[in-house]
Design a protein around this nucleic acid. Sequence first.
DNA 1: ATGATACAGAACAATATGTTCGGTACTGAA
DNA 2: TTCAGTACCGAACATATTGTTCTGTATCAT
Lengths: 183, 183
Amino acid sequence: MDRRQRKTREAIFSAFTLLLSKKEFDKITVGEIIEKADVGRATFYAHFETKDFLLKELCEELFCHIFDSLGDTPVPHRHIFNCDEHDSVYLHLFRHLYKNDNHILDLLSSRNNEVFLRYFRENLNKLTQTQLPLFSKRKDEKLPLDFWANHVSYTFIETVRWWVDNGLIESPEIIAEYFFLAV
Amino acid sequence: MDRRQRKTREAIFSAFTLLLSKKEFDKITVGEIIEKADVGRATFYAHFETKDFLLKELCEELFCHIFDSLGDTPVPHRHIFNCDEHDSVYLHLFRHLYKNDNHILDLLSSRNNEVFLRYFRENLNKLTQTQLPLFSKRKDEKLPLDFWANHVSYTFIETVRWWVDNGLIESPEIIAEYFFLAV
DNA sequence: ATGATACAGAACAATATGTTCGGTACTGAA
DNA sequence: TTCAGTACCGAACATATTGTTCTGTATCAT
């Protein structure tokens, strides 16, 4: 890709991210974005069809990045021997979020968290489908499968939200404990 | 209140509700609202400062109504004898939603559900504070109280969302079972 | 060096917001 | 019934935002 394209794209993304951590998505105007990114109006629209597409692409970059980082995590298995059953993909996710690469937490903690959590959930649901054997067998049998999978994903997201809103005081390990206890 | 005021207020609310069940909140314009409500532009702004305030007031009316209907529900208690432990305020809420007074479900099931669920949650959190003894004692002791209360509220909301998205096939009683099993 | 293309900057139409104002019609109380 | 108060209409208005189009310039890959 042309270096000029990369630079403007990056400038727009980081201006947008900065604004998102301060203002609601709906209140941000294209005018503000291009001013902070220091690009021309026509240039913005050459890159992104609308402001919504910009958001979409930002989310895709962020969450593809975080979920791809799980690439080689082990297949879930019931822990017959006493290995650490919490050392799961979810703990990996908590740790990854804790490092706050790409300022994901800044976005999740802002007034826009609903927007981002929605995208987050989409990716999470796919993941959870493969992880269900990790959890309570009793619930597994008594609840409809998709209800149960949904519940696990949402509980993860609620947990992250609670964690962030409380100022990330707890370690990823403690939060993972809470998560597995709650779910 | 002047009859004229009541009538326009009601006209605006019902026009708005109708539009909300068809379109995203952000895509609805004041122009559409006043056209469908058949009131003048100035009149709209005499009643509601902005579109956001209109939404806020609508939510307050709806959720005050549904939560007030719980007014005389019993204080929670541990069920030592074999009375039906699921016959709780939550079941009452599920039943109330099922009846779909005030078209609350139409709104919760639309693309705007995030907006309404946010308001719903605010009211629900207060309620949940008083209901915690109903739930697992084990979790009660091992989890931070506010984490635990949050989890219960969110699980209720997720459950409603799942229920609605699946077309309200299950009875309120079954859904209450799922809820108490999950949480 | 060169042809391709990404860019700035400005102008543009189209749409939405929120305000103002004069005239009309309704309301609640006397 | 009267009457003062006020809610309403409707139209005009300033302002702001969106998304498009254009020309000339600077940068790119090769």
